[in-house]
């Protein structure tokens, strides 16, 4: 109900833009509202980059920590560890933004000798921190759901802990970890305020495109920055709503995927 309403509404409101410029603006690489250029590519690339970076950092760390907690940590430590993770998951994103702005940026600037710390890397690191608890908690659940008998069977067969981990635990927990990853992807993609503070907000595809030490723009930070300024009914306005539509569409795709994979698990 709500969902159809929201989507329909977004589509309806961004229709003037599609009508006037066709659908090709999605892959346009220039965003200049003043010149009626509404290329979505810079923000799309930025969004993808930020999310990929976040996952690259958070996934190995999160899963490793989950394994550590689930398999190696004594039980009473596990409880408090989990508790603090849940606490972390609840920390408002704007607080991460503050952290990014006043701790991460100076750190990046001085350590990497960058012109400015406001880069895709900063956004990626911050997002990684934000999705870490999600990945960790869900992966831990998945690992602990592997039956004890399997572990013992592996032990009895004389398989070492390493091999058990790689051959038995991880393959079995993989569906759960995959769902965790998808959920985390959704959260990272839709995160607004924290990213907006550290990403630099410039509508330009990094040059070369894999250079994540450059400022960029994400879909959410663009909406956040420009939403209040566009006059209603203008093309600019329609273009921003289209950004929202894109976000919602990707998020729904992800969520469908999560549900199917979740069901498979």
């Amino acid at each position: 109900m709500t969902i159809v309403l929201v989507l329909g509404f977004l589509l309806y409101s961004s229709w003037p833009l599609i009508q006037q410029q066709g659908i090709a603006f999605i892959i346009g690489d220039e965003w200049y509202p003043f010149e009626s250029l509404y290329g979505m590519l810079p923000a799309l690339v930025g969004t993808v980059w930020a999310v990929v970076l976040a996952l690259l950092i958070a996934l190995p760390c999160g899963v490793a920590a989950a394994i550590f907690c689930a398999e190696l940590l004594p039980a009473h430590w596990r409880g408090s560890m989990r508790f603090s993770m849940e606490l972390m998951a609840g920390v408002p994103s704007v607080v991460y933004g503050l952290l990014g702005m006043w701790v991460l940026l100076p750190l990046l600037e001085s350590q990497l000798e960058l012109l400015t710390g406001r880069t895709l890397l900063a956004a990626g690191l911050l997002l990684a921190l934000m999705i870490l608890p999600t990945i960790m908690v869900l992966s831990e659940d998945a690992i602990r759901a592997v039956r004890q008998s399997q572990r013992e069977a592996a032990k009895n067969l004389g398989i070492g802990w390493d091999a058990t981990l790689w051959r038995v635990l991880l393959p079995q927990a993989w569906p759960g970890i995959r769902v965790a990853t998808l959920l985390a992807t959704g959260r990272a993609m839709g995160e607004t305020v924290a990213v907006m503070l550290v990403v630099g907000s410039i509508d330009r595809i990094p040059d070369p495109f894999y250079n994540f030490l450059q400022p960029a723009q994400t879909l959410t930070s663009r909406i956040g920055r420009e939403m209040a300024e566009a006059s209603i009914g203008s093309l600019h306005w329609a273009a921003l709503l289209f950004c929202g539509l894109l976000l919602a569409a990707i998020a729904m795709g992800l969520s469908l995927l999560t549900q199917r994979k979740g069901a498979a698990a």
Binding site: V6, G186, T220, L247, A248, S255
Partner: peptide, 8 residues
């Protein structure tokens, strides 16, 4: 619905 970014 839960997956849609709040900013939307």
């Amino acid at each position: 619905l839960q997956g849609i970014p709040p900013i939307v």
